[in-house]
Design a binder for these strands. Structure first.
Lengths: 130, 130
DNA sequence: TATTGACTTTGAGTTAACACAAAGTAGTAA
DNA sequence: TTACTACTTTGTGTTAACTCAAAGTCAATA
C-alpha cells in the first residue's frame, strides 16, 4: 500500500504518517526499490495500533519506548508488559476523571433545562392573567 | 485568598492561574487596594470548575466562550446550554474511545501474561527432567 | 529605614505534536 | 522526450497551553 492509501484508510495525513515513522512511533516501513514506502500488513497494524493509543491520549514518548522494546525481541516482554500496565492505570484514572466531568456537565445542562421550565411556567401564568 | 493559597489548594501554578484569568478562562479576580488578587468564593468556584473541565480535555477556546456567556447574564442561558450539550457529546465520544483502548490494552497485557505462563511451564518441565 | 518576600504586569520562551515548503526523483502518459 | 504526478528527504513553521524572566510595587519585619 502507498502512503496515500494508508493515509486515506486510517484518516491521518501523509505528513503525520512520515512523522510517526521518523520519530519511531512505528517501525520503519519497507520501501520499493525506488525508495517509495510500501506499507505491508505489519506496518498497517502498527499504524492502526498507534492511532488507537494516541486517540486515547497515551503520550508519544511512551509509545516510542514500547515500539523500541518490541523491536528488541522477546527478551523485553516483561518490560513491555510493565509499560502497558502503567499506561492502563493512567488511562483508567483519566476515564474516571472524565466520567466525573460528564456527570457534572449533565447536572449543569439539567439545571439550564429546569430554568427553561420555570420560564415557561411564568409565561403561562402571564398569559392566563392577560 | 491569595494566589499562592489558591495555587496550593487546586494544585495549579500561579502562572497558570494568572494565564487563565488573562485569557478569560475565569472571570477577573477581585483585587485588594494594592492590586493583589483576592480570590473570593466565586473565583475559587470558577478555578475548580475550569480545572475539572480542562482535566477532561475540553478545549480552552470553548471554555472561554462559556465564561463570556456566563458574564453576559441570563439572556445567554440557551446558548450556554447548547455549548455544554455539544461538549458533552464530544466527551461521551472520547470516553467511548478510551474505553475501547482500555479493552485493547487489557488484551495485550493478558497476552503477555499468558506468555509468561507458557514460559513457566517450560521451566517446570525442564526442572522435572533434570 | 532598609530589606525581604510575595505579589504585580508585560512580554518572551518552551514543549508536544504535527503541518508545510522546497528541492529533488521515479514511474507513467502523451 | 517531455510533462505530470506521486512520492522522497530535510528543514522550517505553527498552534495550544502553558512557563519563565524582568522590572516594578506593596506590606511587613529587623
Amino acid at each position: 500500500m502507498t502512503i496515500s492509501e494508508v493515509s486515506e484508510k486510517y484518516g491521518m495525513t501523509q505528513d503525520t504518517l512520515r512523522y510517526y515513522e521518523r520519530v519511531g512511533l512505528i517501525p520503519i516501513v519497507p520501501r520499493k526499490p525506488s525508495g517509495v514506502r510500501d506499507y505491508d500488513e505489519s506496518s498497517c497494524g502498527w499504524v492502526e495500533f498507534i492511532r488507537c493509543m494516541r486517540n486515547a491520549g497515551l503520550p508519544i514518548e511512551t509509545l516510542i519506548e514500547y515500539v523500541h522494546l518490541c523491536q528488541e525481541g522477546p527478551k523485553t516482554n516483561e518490560a513491555r508488559k510493565h509499560l502497558l500496565i502503567e499506561e492502563r492505570q493512567r488511562l483508567v484514572e483519566r476515564i474516571a476523571a472524565m466520567q466525573a466531568t460528564l456527570v457534572r456537565l449533565n447536572c449543569k445542562i439539567e439545571h439550564y433545562e429546569s430554568m427553561n421550565k420555570v420560564a415557561d411556567k411564568l409565561k403561562k401564568s402571564a398569559s392566563m392573567i392577560s
